[in-house]
Design a protein around this nucleic acid. Structure first.
Length: 431
RNA sequence: GUGGCCGUAGCUCAAUGGCAGAGCACCUGACUGUGGAUCAGGUGGUUGGGGGUUCAAAUCCCCUCGGCCACCCCA
């Protein structure tokens, strides 16, 4: 414990090979799902100006939570806390030449200066998916379908993880019906957002404090029971019809208490939660119709969501879905019998690499037991032995570690044997 | 940024003021050209770091760093 004299920065993680393998696994599934829906990969800078976030409806939240520091010239630099403002700028910059609607996705690091907790660090990775230039409920449903398709792909079932959906315009109309004036609705949205996190008495006290009457508070309670409320919204009726057509009906559900914290959402909002509610939101997103305008472009509608790597990892672990990934890409370990066989072993390894196999050599002569143990620990599926006997006969001994089966074949036949052994489901190929 | 719990071997944890331990892991050997099993032996720690109280501190106090929990906010 006292070993790391130089600690990591608070809230950051080292990615050892096994961690990196999982990150890459997540990335591969995100890429596959994004591309299945025709989304293009893009990225923005990791460093941005503070102005970019200040421009975004002057949200103090983002400014207070971001890593901001002066560069050597004295300009204030921000480690990006989210991607949407960068996306808005990139779109605004090439608004005239981009082919709309555009479908873009990205996976990369983000930073937020927060108190680290389980599922929340100061440096994390996030999958962002956005569609810009179209303002239809079917577009909203497509984004939800991308998220749901990811869950399905990694093995999360609809009874384990679900995307809860609501619509701010619908809620706005409902609040108006309750006689809650427009100036108060932003605060009431925040109130609704905190419904699940507070005890009823505290929540009601908070509601009264922001100016709601007992009748209005009761009206909100009634609203929260209205799981059929979506039927009164044309947008949501179309949303759920599209979700059904997209094959993800079982993953989406109307939930009147979902409102999302961010101010820039204007229409449909959604977030994914685990069924037991043990974890914070797995993904969150919604429709934002004024974003590009905030950084100087013509107004363009958009819809998107973001999913962080930390919570989804916890959820996968909770449901036993964290995959067992290969520890090493090596398919073959070529042993080194003794000094005299070192160079011949290197030649054999290179021969096998030339044939397309991923081959590691033991880096120095050692007892064969030690070398086999090394292969076993790293789960390298095949061990090749080139000792005095094999060398004299122009042969090589190949051992299939999983089956414990060993054959001695002529050197020219080694490749064919390996092809047969490693043909399907060979480790290291990913999913 | 506020309040709270925690930090002992690589890992999971004991020891609650009195000689820092166990299991697993690791290394060596039994097995001189073969891993995963078994048996025997062995390495491993300034108890997160610093200061204080005490004859004596992993244990009590203060500071600090880190993790976790609740706020806050959100991925």
């Amino acid at each position: 414990m006292a070993k790391p004299r130089i600690p990591t920065v608070k809230g950051t993680r080292d990615f050892y090979p096994e961690d990196m393998a999982l990150r890459r696994w997540l990335y591969e599934h995100m890429r596959a799902v994004s591309e299945a829906f025709g989304y293009q990969e893009y990225d923005g800078p990791f460093l941005e100006t503070l102005e970019l976030y200040a421009a975004k409806s002057g949200e103090e939240l983002v400014k207070e939570q971001a890593f901001v520091f002066p560069d050597r010239g004295g300009d204030l630099i921000t480690l990006r806390p989210e991607l949407t403002p960068s996306l808005a700028r990139m779109v605004a910059q090439r608004q005239k030449q981009l082919t709309l609607p555009l479908r873009w996705w990205s996976f990369g690091p983000f930073w937020r200066y927060e108190r680290p907790q389980r599922g929340r660090g100061r440096e994390f990775f996030q999958w962002n998916v956005d569609m810009v230039g179209v303002a239809t409920p079917e577009g909203d449903a497509e984004l939800a379908a991308v998220g749901a398709s990811f869950f399905r792909r990694v093995g999360l079932q609809p009874d384990q993880v679900r995307i809860l959906v609501n619509n701010r315009r619908l809620m706005d109309a409902q609040l108006e019906r309750l006689g809650i004036r427009a100036g108060l609705r932003k605060a009431v949205f925040r109130l609704i957002d905190r419904k699940e996190k507070m005890r009823p008495e505290a929540w009601e006290a908070y509601a009264a404090k922001i100016g709601l009457s007992p009748t209005q508070i009761q009206g909100l309670y009634d609203l929260f029971q209205r799981h059929d409320l979506w039927e009164t919204s044309d947008e949501l009726r179309r949303f759920f019809a599209a979700a059904e057509a997209l094959g993800v009906a079982e993953y989406v559900r109307y939930e009147p208490t979902i409102i999302r914290g961010l101010d820039y959402y204007t229409g449909t909002v959604f977030e994914a939660r685990d069924h037991e509610g043990r974890f914070r939101a797995i993904l969150g997103g919604g429709r934002y119709d004024n974003l590009v305008a905030a950084v100087g472009g013509e107004p363009l509608p958009g819809v998107g969501f973001a999913m962080g790597d930390m919570v989804i990892t916890l959820v996968l672990e909770a449901y036993g879905l964290r995959p067992a990934l290969p520890l090493t890409p090596a398919q073959v370990l070529v042993t080194v019998f003794d000094d005299a066989h070192l160079l011949p072993s290197l030649r054999l390894a290179q021969e096998l690499r030339a044939a397309g196999f991923r081959v590691a050599t033991y880096p120095q002569p050692a007892k064969l037991g030690k070398q086999f143990k090394y292969a076993n620990r790293l789960s390298i599926p095949v061990v090749a032995v080139l000792g005095p006997d094999e060398l004299a006969q122009g042969a090589v001994a190949l051992k299939h570690m999983g089956r414990g089966e060993q054959v001695t074949v002529r050197r020219e036949q080694a490749v064919a044997t390996l092809r047969a052994w490693l043909a399907v489901g060979s480790p290291g190929e990913g999913a």
